[in-house]
Design a protein around this nucleic acid. Structure first.
Lengths: 127, 127
DNA sequence: CGGTTACCTGAACATTTGATCATATATTTA
DNA sequence: TAAATATATGATCAAATGTTCAGGTAACCG
């Protein structure tokens, strides 16, 4: 990303080539205020994970405290394998963690940000 | 769904048949605290909509004020048709609304709940 | 009115996703 | 150590998703 002097920044070129723009200033402003791609992707991935009713139910249930896999399977009414796959996805995103106690794995929330977002969402639903 | 007298509620049957349960009390508690299916589906649909990087960028950009379709297309760097499809989805969910001014349609956020959720999310990213 | 601009919509297609099944791993119990 | 329990994982496949393309509609201008 070394900016060679007189050539306009790539962003400007992107805007002007092949795409019509009515309010260039507004578009430029929006671009400048954008968050980094990494952050965006992370945020989108979290929302996407919460965007499945089953996973959302899992997350909401875990707000009430840790639960083991077979409890979660019973709660959702699906197979333990299915829950395990969902939990893995949530775990890969750092949204839940697990704790082993004997044969059982107890899952709990591992991201207080998401916990707060869920709380805010529920508040809004009940407003 | 007419409940014939002495049979236990369907929920209990669901739990006990074919699904192993370790902590019945915990599962029952989680079920009792659940939100209604409609609310859950709505919430999941909103999160899912935000779970796509392009749509998330649209929503975040619109937090800075209304923009017309071709501006949004330029902002994302995709075709106007593609943006239009995305906007329709957001509109169907009540997340954005549009205002016509001549040939242009200006889109803006139409759900202050989601606006707040986005704000909270951004705050957390920057914490 | 006809042409142009700005946007929408439906269909088609490639990709991604989530459920299922079979198998594998880790822990306890006998 | 063998068997049983609790969970994880890999492969497979149908369903859902996002983009593109090829028309459409609404508003402005001559």
């Amino acid at each position: 990303m070394t900016a060679l002097a007189p050539t306009p920044p790539q962003d400007e070129l992107d805007l002007l080539c092949s795409v019509r723009v009515v309010h260039l200033d507004r578009v430029r402003e929006a671009k400048q205020n954008e968050i980094e791609v990494r952050e965006l992707d992370r945020l989108a991935a979290v929302f996407k994970a919460l965007g499945d009713p089953s996973r959302l139910r899992l997350m909401l249930a875990l707000r009430g405290g840790e639960m083991c896999v077979c409890d979660l399977a019973a709660f959702l009414g699906v197979s333990e394998s299915a829950v395990s796959h969902q939990l893995r996805r949530l775990r890969d995103l750092g949204l839940v963690r697990n704790r082993r106690a004997g044969q059982c794995l107890y899952y709990s929330l591992d991201d207080h940000h998401v916990d707060e977002i869920l709380g805010l969402s529920l508040d809004h639903l009940r407003e």
